[in-house]
Computed example of a mutant assay.
Amino acid sequence: MEDLFRAYAPYLYLHPDEDYLPSSVDWFFNNGALLYKKGEESTPVRIEPGGANLPKGGDPAGLYWLNLPADKGGRDKVSHGDLASAEAYVHFKPGVENGMFTDIQVNSCQFIVDVWMFYPFNGHATAKIGFIKRVSLGRVGEHVSDWEHVTLRVRNGDGVLDKVYFSQHSGGKWVDASLLQFVNGNRFAWYSSRNGHAGNNEPGLHLQGPGNGFGIRNDWAWSNKVVDTGARFVVVASEGEAEAVAEPPWLSYESKWGPTKEYDTTAEVRRVRKFLLGKLKKLLDKLVKVIDEVYGTDGPTGPKVKNNWSGNEA
């Protein structure tokens, strides 16, 4: 299974202007990430290597969450990630369509191979509004920890890559293998959008929102900021006929990887709105509803809590 992954392992390309890079989970823990508990916010605890002291099991009351270091210097350092430590977290699972496929998930802070990548921080959103190509939306879109993934669907009969799923914020899309950009043999490009880290199979711009040339920007581009997932990966879970692996303690942490949204979307947009002309103000107002749909208001969860961990991609 690992050899199969190496044959198709994607190259993760960050945007050339990306400020919030991925890191390994251990780098995040070792550089001061903190575990908070409701009612004891004044005494957060450092996270032990591998997440050994993280609570296990469900947390319906939202008692626990992770956050950046408390000091400004530590927060700044950790929020920008560490490309040198970044690694893909791989989950092998049986195919869900009549057993004809094997899925590999790769986590990028997430083939039927699932491949997950971790980012300590998700940066602020920008928008295109009318003739204004790029408008910063203040703190909108910011949150601690970000898990993104691609899923590689491989045919069991001949081991051929059939299609790839790219996660994009709260959703994603399947892309046929014929539409991938192959970089090195059978290995393809996985583009990560600037600040938001949504995945895509090609560079370019996509706007999320009402349409007609305005919306939240997703910018993808090639750069020399790249992670070779085939060279830097850890198999964290396997199911079905794949050999069982020892799962890291942090994988069983089911509470939030970041606090609930720490800003008021309406207030942040209002700061931007006052600099726009009348018609553009109305366009921006239409984006407010879209913003929370795209980014959510709660802290992010880890890979094992996602519906697609054991089920099919949407």
Rank of each mutant, 00 (worst) to 15 (best):
V226L: 10
G99P: 01
T260L: 00
R194T: 06
S24K: 11
G299K: 09
F29K: 06
H206A: 08
E313F: 07
D26W: 10
N308V: 05
N98F: 03
W27Q: 04
G57R: 08
K77L: 14
L34D: 10
N200I: 00
V150I: 14
S310T: 15
G215P: 02
N201H: 15
F101L: 06
F131R: 14
V290Y: 13
T301A: 10
I104M: 13
R187V: 04
M100F: 09
Y11C: 00
L161P: 05
K163L: 00
E241W: 08
G299C: 08
G159C: 01
G199K: 09
A84Q: 13
N224Y: 12
P60C: 06
S79H: 05
G171Y: 05
G302Q: 05
S193P: 03
P210R: 15
K56Y: 06
A189P: 07
W116M: 10
H143E: 04
L63D: 15
N107D: 09
L205P: 01
D59Y: 06
E18S: 04
T266H: 14
Y11V: 00
A7E: 14
S167T: 14
F131M: 11
A127E: 07
K133Y: 07
K77M: 11
T265F: 00
K163D: 11
K256I: 00
W220T: 08
Y8D: 02
V288M: 03
A314P: 15
G215K: 05
N31M: 01
F28V: 11
Y119C: 05
P249T: 04
K286T: 09
S192T: 11
V144S: 02
E293N: 14
V140S: 11
V294N: 13
G258T: 12
G230Y: 14
K289T: 09
M117W: 12
D19M: 10
G213H: 02
P94M: 04
A9D: 09
C109T: 15
G204S: 11
G157H: 10
G57N: 08
V236M: 08
G50V: 05
K256E: 14
